[in-house]
Design a protein around this nucleic acid. Structure first.
Ligand SMILES: [Mn+2]
Ligand SMILES: [Mn+2]
Ligand SMILES: [Mn+2]
Ligand SMILES: [Mn+2]
Lengths: 220, 220
DNA sequence: CGTAAAATTTAGGTAAGGCTAAATATATTT
DNA sequence: AAATATATTTAGCCTTACCTAAATTTTACG
C-alpha cells in the first residue's frame, strides 16, 4: 500500500503529463524526472505489474494511471500543495522557495500531519501558485481557467494560477506583478510572435509565449 | 557530505549509545535500530571507511563517533528535537505523538527550514521531553541533571527531562503529572526493589526503577 | 584452564532503483 | 517504399542496505 519516494514521484509526474488526456511518453517522463529513459521503462513495467496495477502500459504506447495509481498520485499532490501553502503561510517562505522543500516533505508526512496542516490552513482550495489542491477524499476540483496566451485585446481577466517551479521564472513573474488574484487587461496582440501587451495595475508589459502559456486566468 | 537516511539514523543512535562514554556494541545498535546484528556490522564497516571516517571501529570492540560523525549526529538530533518542539507548539501534537513523525522528517528538511523553525520557536533550549537541543553551531549544551532513581527521602527536585519515546509510557507519565518543569518531593525509598514514593502536586505515587531511571531532575 | 554461551563477523543472497550500451520499434523524409 | 532518425526497450551492471546461515571471537564460569 505505502509507496516508495520514487514510486510516488513517478505517479505524480504521470498524473501531470496525462492531464491533457494523452498517455505520457517514456522520454517525457525521463526529462521530467531527470532519469534516463531506460530506467523509466524499467520502473513503469514494475508499476504496471503491481497488484493492484498503478499504471496502464503497453510497449511503445506510453503510460496512463489506473484508478489506484490516480488516487496515489492525488495523495502526493495534495501533500505537496498543502505543504507549499503551509510553508508560505506559517514559515514565511516565498513562492519561489517552496517547491524544492515540498518535493522532499511530501513523501514522509503522515496522514495525521496532512489533516493538521489542512485544518490549520482552513482547508485551502489552492496553493501559493494558484494550483488546485485535491480534496481530503482525493478528488481534483474542476479547473475552468484559460491560458493567458488565448486572450486578445480588450479582454479583462483575473490570474488564477501559474504553472512554474523554476525559482527564477517565479521571481520574474512576481516582479512583474503577475501573481494569483491579480487583475489584468490585454492591450495588444502581435501575431507571428504571439506577444501580448498586458496591463497589470498601472504597469504595461509585453509578454512572450513562454510566459503567457504558463499563466492561467479567469476571463471577466 | 549529505548522508542517507540510514546513515543518519546509525550516527544518531551511536551518539545516544555512547553518551555514557563507552563504545556502542553491535548488538545494542541492532536492538535500537531494529536491524539484524550482521547488517549493523556491515554498515559500521562502511561508516568507518568513509572519507572522512564517521566512526572509529575495531572488530569486536564496538564503535564510537569521530568528530565528523559527531557533527553529523548532532545535526540530525537538532533537526529531530526542533521538529518535535515545533510539532507540539504549532500543530498541537502531544508529546507522545511527535517522535515518529520527527523520526521521518529529520532526514529531509533543509538547513533553511531548520533555521526558520528555530527562529519561529525562539531558539528553544529543550524539546517537549526536556531533552537539550544542540545549538546551531552543533554544540551539545552541558546537562547537569540527575536520574530520579538517585534521589532519597526529603529531597526536592524539578523534573528536567524524560528519556522515552514509547507513547504508552509517555501517556502514563503525563497522567501521573510527571512532565518537565514539575516539582517533586521524595517521601519514601524502599530498598531491594528501589521503589521511590514521590509527591507530585498533591498526588503521591510509588515509582519503580523502570520509571525512575527515565526521569532526570535538577535537585533543589 | 578449558569449555560452553553469547556476541560478532563473514559469506552469500535479495530487492530497489539507478546507469550504459546495444537492439529494436516507430516516425519522418525523401 | 526505403532509408534515416528518433524513441523505446532489453541486457547487463552497479550501489545501498537489508537478510540468513555459518564461521569465528570474546566472555563467562565450572
Ligand atoms: Mn518528490
Ligand atoms: Mn494524504
Ligand atoms: Mn541542520
Ligand atoms: Mn530517523
Amino acid at each position: 500500500m505505502k509507496q516508495s519516494t520514487s514510486t510516488q514521484d513517478y505517479l505524480k509526474h504521470i498524473y501531470e503529463l496525462t492531464e491533457c488526456g494523452l498517455p505520457a511518453s517514456t522520454n517525457d517522463m525521463a526529462r521530467k524526472l531527470n532519469i534516463k529513459p531506460a530506467s523509466v521503462t524499467g520502473m513503469i513495467q514494475k508499476l504496471a505489474t503491481e497488484k493492484p496495477a498503478l499504471v496502464e502500459y503497453q510497449k511503445h504506447q506510453g503510460v496512463t494511471l489506473t484508478p489506484a495509481g490516480r488516487r496515489a498520485a492525488l495523495e502526493v499532490i495534495r501533500h505537496h500543495r498543502l505543504l507549499e501553502t503551509w510553508l508560505v503561510q506559517t514559515l514565511g517562505y516565498s513562492w519561489d522557495e517552496v517547491h524544492e522543500e515540498a518535493e522532499r516533505l511530501e513523501h514522509v508526512i503522515s496522514e495525521d500531519f496532512e489533516r493538521r496542516i489542512a485544518a490549520a490552513l482552513g482547508n485551502p482550495a489552492r496553493d501559493p501558485h494558484g494550483e488546485l489542491i485535491p480534496t481530503a477524499d482525493l478528488k481534483m476540483p474542476e479547473d475552468d481557467s484559460t491560458p493567458l496566451s488565448a486572450l486578445r485585446p480588450n479582454q479583462t481577466a483575473t490570474i488564477q494560477r501559474v504553472i512554474a517551479q523554476d525559482p527564477n521564472l517565479l521571481r520574474h513573474l512576481e516582479s512583474l506583478g503577475l501573481t494569483p488574484g491579480i487583475q489584468i487587461e490585454i492591450m495588444e496582440y502581435s501575431p507571428f510572435d504571439n506577444n501580448l501587451t498586458v496591463k497589470v495595475g498601472r504597469k504595461v508589459n509585453v509578454l512572450g509565449l513562454n510566459i503567457t502559456t504558463k499563466i492561467f486566468v479567469e476571463i471577466k
